[in-house]
Design a protein around this nucleic acid. Structure first.
Lengths: 237, 237
DNA sequence: CCTCTCCATGGCATTCGGTGCCAGAATAGG
DNA sequence: CCTATTCTGGCACCGAATGCCATGGAGAGG
């Protein structure tokens, strides 16, 4: 079957058209006040088919988001190496998904803010991303259990992403360049924290400040040896 | 009004008794298959009063959790200074809340795992903690916007907490000492990453290793001053 | 062109969560 | 003991969500 494209014919209301109509109704009349019958009447799709195609009233609002999530997951599965960079790119993809569809994402943001139930739904979505990122970061060769570091890194990244995303959602009219700039900044911020975390066993750099005081004439080799020993001790067992 | 204590009289089914009965029904018959009428019949509380007292069927399962959340928020509000340590203590309080009530938290964990809807609810709870922690960490004097660092730190802590919590929930019979040990470890892990984040502008700790070599007889004050200056130079732009 | 098949649709009936309304019981307080 | 407030439970009702079944359209094969 061919995609009907963007045409708004009477033929078969596309998923996107239904979502847009529903979003409009939700923002005009409120989420609770809008019944499935209203949406059915507005879209020409029967109430029964709406439930069949979307699952629930909430799912209409988050249909596009679910698609985005699948896209991101597929992207991650296709990314072979350098997991940290892959995850950062995935987060970039998520932000791009939001920015690229303001007609849905922006009013949805305001609906979500107003209604606790929808807020929980949105939060659950970000948790799904976080879980996917965490799983991706954790499944590395090497016997040790990296799940703690992976989880923390994923949580940090998601938090930074949401920080930037909220900033844009509050003022969607702002320049996209600024948004991407602050995203890059936030990601760099997280990278500084996460990078040493995931390589914790091999490299020094646990945020220690080492002050070594030795007699001025100490041999360089000897000094380096002692400093190295001190660092290893500071890193712990 | 006096608390009825632990008595299981006919008088007035306590909140906790209702929750326990509901949890039992949920695990026996499944969450969906258990209707509010069943819970009403099992507890002696009318269906109408159940809705009045708990709000919804899900809320019965999470009633104790809501209480814990209020406790933690009150604790945070009463904590004046050293915000990072306060937040860590708050996380400890949350874990304690879980460990202290396995009769509810453990079966709830299995219910949550099985049912996506309940999982979303659980995720929403942790998001509430995260938001509370983040707000608490961000509301510091100083004009700069610390919300990114605060959000990332809160997310990291919550992630670490959940990491430990899940470990216990999967094997609740394990020694409590081990649980607390792994919690301390996880918190220390997060602290190493979060501490420099929140004091990025003021204190050293950007993963530099400073080696200062001075004559053995140097005055302590002088030495500290020079080290401080070197650190500031290394940090700053 | 006709027919058979498959799948999406939509109407119908039903279950169940959730709420408003109101009357009656319980409890505090004088 | 009487009154005011609060909690409770029964009733009716709305709307989300699901199962069942008939219908209709699109495509495959004759």
């Amino acid at each position: 079957m061919e995609r009907s494209g963007g045409r708004s014919g009477q033929t078969r209301a596309d998923t996107r058209e239904v979502v847009l109509a529903a979003v409009r109704l939700f923002t005009e009349s409120g989420f609770d006040a809008t019944t499935m019958d209203h949406i059915a009447a507005a879209t020409g799709v029967s109430r029964r088919s709406l439930f069949r195609r979307f699952g629930s009233k909430e799912d209409i609002l988050f249909a596009e988001h679910d698609e985005l999530f699948s896209t991101v997951v597929r992207f991650l599965e296709a990314s072979p190496d350098d997991p940290l960079s892959s995850v950062f790119s995935a987060a970039r993809l998520v932000l791009q998904g939001y920015l690229g569809d303001p007609e849905i994402t922006v009013p949805r943001y305001h609906l979500v803010r107003a209604h606790p139930r929808l807020r929980d739904r949105e939060v659950a979505m970000t948790a799904r991303y976080q879980a996917a990122f965490s799983r991706y970061l954790a499944r590395r060769e090497g016997g040790e259990d990296r799940s703690l570091a992976a989880g923390v890194a994923a949580a940090s990244l998601i938090s930074a992403h949401n920080h930037v995303l909220r900033g844009w959602l509050r003022r969607p009219e702002q320049d996209r360049g600024e948004v991407w700039a602050s995203f890059d900044e936030a990601v760099a911020f997280v990278r500084r924290a996460a990078e040493p975390m995931l390589h914790a066993e091999r490299e020094p750099g646990h945020d220690h400040v080492l002050v070594a005081v030795y007699p001025g004439g100490t041999d360089r080799e000897e000094l380096l040896r002692r400093v190295g020993a001190a660092v290893r001790e500071a890193e712990g067992p």
